[in-house]
């Protein structure tokens, strides 16, 4: 974990609800795909946690959905403004966990950390396939970015207006060696119920601090209580206890 000042390099809308934000600064604490950062926004007491989508030597990219007052305020900030950011939070994905031909299964903005993971997997000579789930055609984003990596990229929409009709589980098949999933909890659970493959799931919870101090995001697992921010956000599917 590091704390630092980052400069907004780019902050643009991708769809009616999703924006991309590139922040420049010391990215040395971001060491694995699936880790997240915690942004401080003026006028709000708590920080806002976001998964890192991608990073280079001097900047990182976030994809965020404008869902409340905090993210609306964030979307109005112009390039050149600086933000106080905690970086290198959480455990991140294990790129060996899903075998040689893993599925990357995303619900909406859950695709963000899976993009960086796809690049890491390709570097290791693995052959990932992306399944990107959305509600409807107008919400589809980042499909070309996944495809541009040269990996098979399937889009599903719940209303059938684009790609495969239905949920991401409809696109899952048995040719794969494992999966990595990020999206709404109901989707993560459905993915696990659909396939017995080894898998890692990235969870989202309301957090206080984002670095393990407040115990605000603890979930009960087969390994005992784990902090989603510090011991997660990525959990082995085998450790998850689903609520009744």
């Amino acid at each position: 974990m590091k704390q630092g000042q980052f400069t907004i390099l780019e902050n643009t809308a991708l769809t009616g609800r999703v924006s991309r934000l590139r922040l420049g600064g010391d990215v040395s604490a971001i060491v694995r795909p699936g880790q997240f950062v915690d942004l401080r926004l003026e006028g709000f007491f708590l920080r806002r946690p976001f998964s890192v989508c991608d990073r280079d030597d001097a900047s990182f990219l976030l994809l965020y959905e404008r869902v409340g007052r905090g993210t609306e305020l964030l979307s109005a900030l112009p390039p050149g403004r600086t933000l106080d950011v905690l970086t290198g939070l959480g455990n991140g994905f294990d790129p060996e966990h899903g075998g040689d031909a893993p599925l990357l299964i995303a619900g909406g903005t859950g695709l963000s950390p899976l993009y960086g993971l796809a690049k890491a997997l390709l570097k290791r000579g693995k052959s990932p396939t992306a399944i990107l789930g959305f509600n409807t055609a107008s919400e589809v984003f980042f499909e070309e970015d996944f495809a541009a990596l040269g990996i098979e990229t399937l889009v599903c929409t719940a209303d059938g207006s684009r790609g495969l009709p239905g949920f991401v589980t409809a696109a899952m098949d048995r040719r794969h060696t494992g999966f990595y999933a990020c999206g709404p909890e109901a989707m993560l659970r459905a993915v696990c119920e659909t396939s017995p493959m080894p898998g890692e799931l990235s969870f989202d919870q309301r957090m206080g601090c984002g670095f393990g101090a407040c115990m605000g995001c603890t979930v009960l697992t087969k390994k005992g209580p784990l902090r989603v921010c510090r011991d997660g956000p990525v959990l082995d599917r085998e450790d998850v206890l689903w609520a009744d």
């Binding site: 007491f45 708590l46 309301r206 206080g208 605000g216 995001c217 603890t218 979930v219 009960l220």
Partner: peptide, 20 residues
Amino acid sequence: RPGNPLPRIAETASGMLNAV
């Protein structure tokens, strides 16, 4: 003690609520 169910945290004006 496992603590309370989630959510345990809520933001407020100039502060926060916790129910850990």
